[in-house]
Design a protein around this nucleic acid. Structure first.
Lengths: 363, 363
DNA sequence: TTGTATGCGTTATCAC
DNA sequence: GTGATAACGCATACAA
């Protein structure tokens, strides 16, 4: 006999206890107070619609007692019994990326609307890998898991996920199939539309800043190369810069580009955060945007409309994508037996033209 | 006999199963395969240092079997037994605030370092209130709870928290005592130091933009008023603007201030996000920062160094504060019996002078 | 050194 | 209508 839990005594949970040291009140406590059996209490309190009819009188008394004692169901016990935990696991690479922060907000909202809570696992960088997430996963303590961003550089994690028995869906992992259901954005269409926009403005010397968000970014990069090829332009030396997804990355990338003999007249950044850095660096070097240099981003983070000048970018349909992912997870037609039949919705971003793009100098 | 869990049969969890439909393997499965009892498996696998000695041979076989079967401990069951869940509950008002995003990152990192995972509860706005957090709290399913930002406009939530039996600490709630342990920042000292900085630069007509982060913001506002009083300046009409904590808020606030007959020469924004909006609006109206207008923020979010011009602000010692809060929670000297003895550490922000502040025009 | 038995708080399956 | 009772997966007091 052992009782690791603090529990002062059998007749605990009196109204006036040591303040701040409230006690765990279980169904048995409620049952004792009501004078019924614990299983009756369960029937009343578990919310199971009407498994069997219950006397109104009994029900009322139980409810009253439960309230009086301050009864709270123990989700651990419920979970152990196989009930849904109403927890949605979310694994994200980087919370500090405003884009993902917005996505988390959207997930959290969508989840709340369905009565779910969000458990956030943070995949900070490669190093910590699955460690930080282990609990969240092997936990199987969430009813479903959502991955935000491409984690394919963490093979162990992806394996773990694939091996789990609860539904998993990946958002923004890029649209390669890897045995995980996914909801993605049409990066190719997005980049094509900014490129078209710039080309229409007369730009030909268009550079690109790739970021560290992996899957999505790679697709954007490829789309950039393809779009350039489509108008018969080469990817000039130094026009394709790789940076970590921070303002500093964009700043450095532009710095490098400005060293070039043939400077670009436009820079397509693969994320808004990078674009912010590009704008900053341009300003620091006395280059006027958009007169001397056009700049575009991707994501349309909240601050994109307030950069100087405001940023032309691609708006991500975050809410729609998140809603779609949550639906997949919860209303879940994700038949484990046939992953090839899983839907893989793809959403289109929309071009938002603001003040950071203009006609090419001398066009 | 009921079994809500999917479990194909006793000898399940074979290596080659239906892919994607893995099975739940328990200690009993491991025990059966090893030929020992479930409790021996528990002793080996639970990691309890050396409750009692175990034969090396047995241990090895158990470990091997566990690995072969892909055994994962069930945290629900562990939790039910009263073991720590290694979960840290974090409740935050607004993830999309880059400051809080950074804080969450810090918490997540600090928690991971101690083997904890983070469960995020999102307190989006007043409306959803405790609802979204209910699970996280009454759950008592986290070992400890951390509140990020002032939630005092959600009295029900705060009550729930105070009534809970696990340690709770509030970060950035402002330093008013309300029966919850807290770690806060010295808003007064912070604002005093920017005000001193501006005053030294010759500014007298200094305006303030208050934001919606409640507790902290109120203190900053009071400090602003006090600092002005200290140099014998009144709070001029329209110099104290209230805005929601978004760039647009700052933008509108500056707009209003520019209508005034006596325009301010400096604007102290209560957060960096607001300051971004102020910078944007100033630029939109052709007002040069810092020549015609000095602008300051509070928080030092990552983008603050990359605004145009880069923002003079107060750096929040996030990591130190978070570490302190986590220590309080986990190494926890939080005696429930005596809340008045709880430590309430206060950290000082440091002034970071960048390009958005300069001498007052005509000084 | 290992096995047996018990209980954590629930839900679900029986009887009554 | 309601009350016993058996699990859920795990950790431990106790016996062997």
């Amino acid at each position: 006999m052992d009782r690791p839990n603090r529990r002062p005594g059998p007749s605990a949970a009196r109204t006036s206890d040591v303040p701040g040291a409230r006690v765990i009140v279980t169904m048995r406590d409620v049952a004792r107070l009501t004078g019924v059996s614990q299983s009756t209490v369960s029937r009343v309190l578990s919310g199971a619609p009407t498994a069997v009819p219950i006397a109104d009188d009994t029900r009322d008394r139980v409810v009253a007692a439960a309230r009086a004692l301050g009864y709270r169901p123990n989700p651990l016990a419920r979970g152990l019994r196989g009930m849904p935990t109403m927890l949605l696991g979310v694994i994200v690479r980087d919370i500090t990326d405003p884009f993902f922060a917005g996505a988390i907000e959207a997930v959290s909202l969508e989840a709340a609307g369905r009565g779910y809570n969000v458990v956030l696992g943070h995949a900070h960088g490669r190093a910590d890998e699955a460690i930080a997430l282990y609990g969240v996963l092997e936990a199987r303590h969430c009813d479903a898991i959502m991955m935000l961003g491409d984690m394919s550089d963490q093979p162990r994690l992806v394996d773990d996920l694939r091996g789990t028995h609860i539904p998993v869906v990946a958002l923004w992992e890029g649209s390669k199939p890897d045995g995980i259901a996914s909801v993605s954005v049409d990066n190719d269409a997005g980049i094509r539309s900014v490129m078209d926009h710039l080309i229409e403005l007369g730009h030909r010397r268009i550079a690109f800043v790739a970021g560290s968000r992996l899957g999505d970014i790679r697709e954007r990069e490829e789309a950039y190369v393809a779009a350039l090829a489509a108008i018969g332009e080469p990817v000039r030396d130094g026009y394709l810069q790789y940076a970590s997804n921070e303002p500093m990355g964009g700043s450095r990338a532009l710095g490098a580009m400005l060293e070039l003999a043939e400077r670009p007249t436009a820079v397509v950044a693969s994320t808004d955060v990078l674009a912010m850095g590009v704008l900053f660096e341009a300003n620091a070097r006395g280059i006027t945007v958009p007169d001397e240099l056009s700049v575009t981003g991707f994501d349309d983070i909240p601050l994109a409309a307030f950069s100087i000048p405001s940023l032309t970018t691609l708006r991500m349909p975050i809410r729609e994508m998140v809603a779609s992912a949550v639906a997949l997870l919860i209303d879940g037609p994700l038949d484990p037996a046939d992953p090839s039949a899983w839907p893989r919705p793809i959403f289109a971003p929309s071009l938002v033209i603001r003040a950071s793009t203009g006609p090419a100098a001398g066009a």
